[in-house]
Amino acid sequence: MPEILCCFKWLIDESYIRASSSGELDLETVDYKLSNYDRNAIEESVRLQEEYGGTVSAITVGLPDSTKGVKDALSRGPEKAYFINDDSFENLEPSQTAAILADIISSQINYDLIICGEGSSDLYAQQVGPRLAEKLGIPCISYIQKVQIEGDRIVAEKKVEDGIEVISAPMPVLLTVLPDINTPRIPGLKDTLGASKKPVINISKDDLTVSYEAKIHTNAIIAASMERNCQKFGSETEDIANLARALAKEGVIK
């Protein structure tokens, strides 16, 4: 029976981000949420547990005030959570997150299967999963849209450009899942109320073997601006020719 570990990130809900006219982001009044695809990762972990038995734990790295995120994750089914937190864990870049997770997982947690979302809803770097697998020395299968367990192997359907690749790998293995894999259920009241009673294992920076410095530095984040260009054309033959020329000029058609 598999011991499943799902990774999640508690991050800024992008729908609350406002951009000023100069492109600066206003993060004063934002709210936070579980990264979208991590909901799929948690749901898939719980679904596999329902089908094959075993255990599901959730793990996150973040700021100490992400406790609501831990409750949110637990309300979706995992029976316990590992909460690696420190005031310095703000805006970690993927190499740091993966290294911290690997450090704790390899020293403290038993697992047969680790499930991550394909990418986070903020950066979508798609790196934490593969980097974590690399550090743990286990296989990583990405772009997963369906998964089954057969004996001690995982059989997964990976979405590729023009089709589906069916891959099998021995456990322990790490999967990164696409949103197509399932529809996360909405926690009911009992789930939310029960989440507060589940065990949370707090892990601090002191529990790490070394400290991990950022390899990438973000110098600025500026809102993308979309140039809108509105031109009006009539319906005469000549107008249509003008429309085609204008589209070609903009590079929309060749």
């Binding site: 949420k33 409750k71 949110d72 309300s75 909405i186 939310t192």
Partner: peptide, 18 residues
């Protein structure tokens, strides 16, 4: 409380979905 906030957003999601 965190619970009340989560319950609010779960009900919101429920209502938007169903």
């Amino acid at each position: 409380t965190e619970e009340q906030e989560l319950i609010r957003s779960n009900m919101r999601e429920f209502a938007e979905t169903y």
